[in-house]
Design a protein around this nucleic acid. Structure first.
Lengths: 196, 196
DNA sequence: GAAGAGAACGACCGATCGTGCTATTCTTCA
DNA sequence: TGAAGAATAGCACGATCGGTCGTTCTCTTC
């Protein structure tokens, strides 16, 4: 890895952390340069535009999410254990050291939901993938006989995701200590209602 | 009402609509002035600072929320009907004409969750009130014998709110037509599991 | 050790930000 | 109707924004 690539990767690490706190729009080139100890122009030379930087940040987040949440879950046994792993791994992701502001996707989805463009498209696609992965895991759990045969897998995924949103809301805005407990209980009741 | 008050109210109406789309931080005085047809300084004279304007916007949203969601629900019969009204009225609020970007509270909670200050405090307090209202309605439903006696009212409120967050996510980011259907189904399963 | 490529720097651009101060115009009420 | 005061406009400020420029420094390669 060349020096340029290393610097670029470091910039993106810092940018990801900052973006999780302040969002992608409030992420300013000048402030970011100060944080990483580069001049503004020196930092900017690594990217074609601010939007390009933002896209790279989201890409990095997606890669990290797959690495931390999806991949480990897919290694778990088919069925309920895999569904459970998806849910539980998500908390590790949200509390990952590079995300002091919590899950980036949730943090920026509000600021992007009315701003068309490649950034929104990228976020949307990754969120659809995420829901798809959950639904697929639920379908596998039906196949394995863990979940009831008439389960609506999409509805299951939707509710699981809603509990994740609820957790994020509680944990970040309310700073509630009970957030994970609440989410866990909600998840358990969802699983219970879905079992065969 | 003096002319000044009328102008101020009109400014806040426009500001509320814009903030629901772009957030409270990206709400700029200059752009807002163009929208309402005032000069930047003419508009600014109505407020002590930008933060003051933002606070007034949130206050207006809170007043409108009470008017559209809480008050009508409290007029419904005690018990499940009242709980149901809270949930259903919320959709009217989110789709209200002055909120083209959806629920303001959800839209700005991500951008405020890591920014301490009076703005965050105000949002937090109103969100706590909201959860409190739901929980109280659930407790009344227990009293009325509609919900089971050992129901955890706070958990019920938490899950109901999670479904609302899920709806907002689906409807605004995904532009999903099924969003309300999904939320409704989730709500029904929650109510079913809570009944006596 | 010379040459060329890659990386970072500082100065600067036009635009916009929030926020003053002052002058002018419009309302309101005696 | 005219004076008092509220409401709005005009203008300017310092700061910061994303972005471009030419220059310099460092590193690799022959």
């Amino acid at each position: 890895m060349s020096k340029g690539d290393a610097t670029r990767a470091m910039i993106l690490d810092v940018a990801l952390a900052t973006a999780s706190k302040v969002g992608l729009e409030a992420l300013s080139i000048g402030e970011l340069a100060k944080e990483v100890g580069l001049s503004k122009s020196g930092l900017f030379a690594h990217f074609a535009s601010k939007e390009d930087l933002q896209i790279e940040v989201v890409r990095k987040a997606i890669a990290r999410f797959i690495e931390l949440v999806i991949s480990p879950a897919l290694k778990r046994p088919r069925g309920e254990p895999r569904v459970r792993a998806l849910f539980e791994n998500w908390f590790d992701w949200s509390r990952a050291s590079e995300l002091p502001g919590g899950c980036l996707f949730i943090a920026v989805s509000s600021e992007l939901d009315d701003q068309p463009g490649p950034l929104r498209d990228l976020l949307l696609a990754s969120q659809k993938d995420w829901l798809g992965v959950i639904a697929q895991a639920a379908r596998v759990a039906v196949e394995e006989g863990h979940f009831k045969s008439n389960l609506d897998a999409e509805q299951f995924a939707w509710q699981l995701d809603a509990f994740i949103l609820g957790y994020h809301h509680s944990a970040r805005l309310f700073r509630s200590k009970d957030a994970q407990k609440r989410a866990q209980r909600a998840f358990e009741s969802l699983v219970r209602a879905s079992r065969a």
